[in-house]
Design a protein around this nucleic acid. Structure first.
Lengths: 130, 130
DNA sequence: CTGCATCCTCTAGCCACTAGAGGATCAAGC
DNA sequence: GCTTGATCCTCTAGTGGCTAGAGGATGCAG
């Protein structure tokens, strides 16, 4: 059972231009074409796109995904790099959370200080200025 | 006491190209120039850049900062919009934190499942694929 | 056969910068 | 006065990960 790009988009929940974009940057192999140049995909494309989509949702960069896919394509290789990439991604996310929590604290103070006067006395403006 | 762009960059901890960029997009007014076309700034520029920098660190978009600066430039206006912008920014940050915490959970599971074999049996790859 | 959906390629835009080319000018030391 | 290195100028292009739109070909249903 083959799929058009539109059907693949629905099956994988990835938009058509994004699929073409992934092909362009080499995450997806170039599919075969019909005589009229339309892309034709098989089930493997659905799996590969699901892989990419899941990894992107976890915040992996395209570069990281390229490595992960490469490993997935070569099952005989050691998988230490996959572990490393996952650990690094976790570290990045944890760092981002800490940073955002700090931000949240500052913003909460900012929001609590909101006033109903004119900009001249506005505490939000004041806090940003000073 | 006037400042060159380099001195302003040091005083405000904003890089030179970024200062020029802020001028280009209208966050900073065009400064006067020397006879040799070099930008000359006063203390007001330091304050304005500090404002921008602080707001950027809090994650405000350039558009939001434009509005905040506009308010700051017109102290007679009501400041409800500043409050609104701050509240919205807080909401955005809180949403982002929730999202990242979910991500962190998934990534922790991924990282705990790391294996020392080959990619064929790698749980990280497997988890991403399935 | 008409009309709409789907597909194609190609280019440009988004955000907030950042990097680099290629050149002019300045300040300090000899 | 001359050299050297820092600083400045403008302009263009690149980053990441898409997204939007132009302009056109094809497919399919009524």
């Amino acid at each position: 059972m083959t799929l058009s790009i539109g059907q693949l988009a629905k099956a994988s929940d990835v938009k058509i231009p994004t699929i073409r974009f992934y092909e362009q940057i080499g995450l997806l192999p170039e599919p075969i074409r019909t005589s009229n140049d339309r892309r034709v995909y098989g089930q493997e494309a659905v799996r590969r796109l699901a892989f990419i989509r899941h990894a992107r949702q976890l915040g992996f960069s395209v570069e990281a995904i390229r490595n992960l896919l490469d490993l997935s394509d070569h099952p005989e290789r050691p998988c230490g790099e996959a572990n490393l990439l996952a650990a690094r991604q976790l570290g990045d996310v944890e760092a981002k959370i800490v940073q955002l929590e700090t931000l949240r604290g500052e913003l909460r103070r900012l929001v609590q200080a909101t006033c109903d006067g004119r900009a001249a006395d506005c505490r939000v403006i004041e806090a940003l200025a000073g």
